[in-house]
Design a protein around this nucleic acid. Structure first.
Length: 583
RNA sequence: GCGCUCGUAGCUCAGUUGGAUAGAGUGUUGGCCUCCGAAGCCAAAGGUCGUGGGUUCGACUCCCGCCGAGCGCGCCA
């Protein structure tokens, strides 16, 4: 519809130009937006205001010229000039009401579009270190990424969902060693658990598994594990302390046995994460291992390519990438003095690999604490010869959890955190998914646990679900009473009260609102749309009876209600929220 | 100190990329079930859009300066 009006305006401008009523070459950046007020028609354009200056003509006069050219077109019922020079379009009522038939006919496909034209887009999200179960801090990225991927897929992109598993590096060794130490305790050894180790109960679980399957195989005296280990905090350096313990674990167990423990901890946690996410309605097409980058020599390839392109130099025994050439604040080390490549080097290789896989667009969803890495990653892509703009990074701000008005503080290392699983079991999957995406993702948000938990009208997710359940209930009433829609086409023209007109118009907006949400990467726009839809529906419901004696009117109203239900389902489905038939 | 993200009703937040009288929810106050689900509807009240300039027909939106909040500034991952 928007496009039709767009074309009408462009055509009018062309005609005016040819009639020499306006100067040529004004540029036709036509903007048409849905009107907010019913008194301002269905759609409005500010074109006259935009062009008034270059046309050297008062905006209202120009608007009138354009309006006169368009008046009488099909689909347009009425057209008028208003305010400082807006052109308001009132659609012919049959044109707007036809959306009901379209929705019922297209069903779950209503709102789909071909905007993406099948181009390949990758969304990488969550990617939390597998050093513990996911906590509520990861939930927002999971919900945002999953919803964004759903949206992009719905508007015609070929979407791949990926999780980057950080299965290399020091944090993983800390986890492996933490597991081993707990195992030793299960073997009867008495130890002082390192302050910098992972202290959560899940480490005990993994150690217990290990002990069940391997008995005493990895048992070494605690005295040996702690031999020559420097002091722990507060007296000593907790980082040095844990590093010494890791070295001892390697030495005492040998690479093979150490590897068994390490892999067991890693695999268990990846599986825990995968299961939790699945229960949260979030699934991935690929789990990409950081270690595989090294195994396949991709890190070397990336560093060599940077070197060949002349962006690498040596200093202090380390290899540096000159990212400052591309706007980064400082240069970055890719290979340390000790010969090991850095995490950043892995990241370069990973992104190189993403583009080599042929994606047209790559989207990363990161926690806001990673914003400092954007410049260097983009710099590396430019240096490798890729188009850095094809990498989009979206930051998701943290959600502060509130309970009884108090902020809940958390720390992964100490094991004091609310897990995503606990949240889901507490407030339910629907409320959790909904709460995470109802705010703009780049804004800080407060997650009110009491509110999410509440099974009452205060909880916004029920407002939408209730609208859907109400519609289903009406449909149940009909079948119980043996009411069936009469054969033949619907007479939608009898849907003529203000509630019905507003509702019909809102339904017709879904496709463009979905496209807008996808284009802007802002799933919360879908939430806003559905909330408005529910509002229009509830108002209508309260003002009018659907099941009336007049069969023609009843059929039309039931069709409208069914269309609302369909759109609500489609929208909630994108959000990963259920649309219950009863509550 | 430098950089990033922000600042809108008492509280939590929208505001369709510069448009018409800045909107919801919640909270407060008052009304609506003899009727398809009251987890709903209707109404009242609540604002110097942090602040001071600038850009223009028009600024919550764009630019600059201040004030305030969160985060980031490792040869950690």
């Amino acid at each position: 519809m928007k496009q039709i009006i767009n074309d009408l305006i462009a055509q009018a401008l062309l005609e005016l130009e040819q009639a020499a009523q306006i100067p040529p070459d004004l540029g036709h950046n036509v903007q048409v937006t849905p009107s907010k007020e019913p008194g301002q028609g269905d759609y409005a354009s500010n074109i006259a205001l935009m062009l008034a200056k270059s046309a050297a003509m008062p905006p209202r006069e120009l608007a009138q010229l354009i309006a006169d050219r368009i008046a009488g077109a099909d689909a347009i019922g009425r057209i008028e000039v208003a305010g400082p020079g807006f052109i308001n379009f009132f659609l012919a009522s049959d044109a707007s009401q036809s959306v009901i038939n379209r929705i019922l006919q297209q069903g779950e496909d209503f709102g789909r579009s071909r905007m993406g034209q099948g181009s390949r887009i990758q969304v990488e999200f969550v990617s939390a270190n597998p050093t513990g179960p996911l906590h509520v801090g990861h939930g927002r990225g999971a919900a945002y990424g999953a919803t964004l991927a759903n949206l992009l897929s719905f508007v015609g992109y070929d979407v791949q969902r990926e999780y980057y598993v950080n299965d290399a590096g020091r944090q993983m060794h800390i986890l492996g060693t933490s597991t081993w130490l707990r195992y030793l305790e299960l073997c009867g050894e008495e130890i002082d658990f390192p302050s910098n180790g992972y202290q959560g109960d899940y480490v005990w679980d993994i150690a217990a598994d290990l002990h069940r399957e391997n008995a005493e195989r990895f048992h070494r005296p605690a005295a040996q594990a702690f031999a020559d280990v420097s002091a722990d905090a507060p007296a000593g350096d907790k980082e040095k302390h844990i590093d010494d313990l890791i070295d001892n674990a390697h030495g005492l167990l040998g690479e093979d046995e150490y590897g068994i423990i390490f892999d067991h901890a890693l695999n268990t946690l990846v599986e825990v994460i995968r299961t939790d996410l699945h229960a949260f309605g979030v699934d991935f097409d690929r789990w990409f291992s950081e270690r595989s980058l090294n195994d396949e020599g991709l890190i070397e390839t990336a560093v060599t390519r940077l070197q060949d392109n002349g962006y690498v130099y040596e200093q202090g025994g380390a290899l540096w990438f000159r990212s400052t050439d591309f706007g980064d604040e400082k240069d970055r080390v890719v290979r340390r003095e000790n010969g090991q490549t850095t995490y950043f080097a892995s990241d370069i290789a990973y992104h190189m690999n993403k583009f080599d896989r042929g994606f047209d667009k790559v989207i990363n969803v990161w926690g806001a604490d990673h914003h400092g890495y954007i410049a260097r990653v983009k710099a590396s892509l430019t240096a490798l010869g890729y188009t850095a703009d094809d990498l989009e990074i979206h930051l998701v701000q943290f959600a502060n959890l509130f309970e009884k008005g108090e902020k809940i503080s958390m720390s992964t290392r100490s094991g004091e955190f609310v897990t995503l699983r606990q949240l889901r079991e507490d407030v339910g999957r629907d409320a959790a998914r909904f709460f995470y995406v109802m705010r703009k993702s780049e804004h800080h948000m407060d997650f009110d646990l009491d509110l999410a938990r509440e099974q009452s009208s205060d909880n916004p997710v029920y407002y939408l679900q209730y609208a859907h359940a109400r519609i289903c209930s009406v449909q149940r009433q009909c079948s119980e009473k043996g009411i069936e829609a009469s054969a033949g086409p619907l007479n939608l023209a009898c849907l003529d009260n203000s509630h019905e007109k507003a509702l019909v118009k809102h339904l017709s907006l879904l496709p463009e609102r979905i496209e807008s949400a996808a284009r802007r990467r802002e799933p919360h726009l879908v939430v806003n749309y559905l909330r408005e839809l529910a509002n229009h529906f509830h108002s209508w419901y309260n003002a009018h009876q659907f099941i009336v004696d007049d069969a023609e009117l009843r059929d039309a109203r039931l069709a409208l209600a069914a269309a609302v239900g369909q759109v609500m389902r489609n929208g909630l489905n994108l959000l990963g929220v259920g649309a219950p038939e009863k509550m």
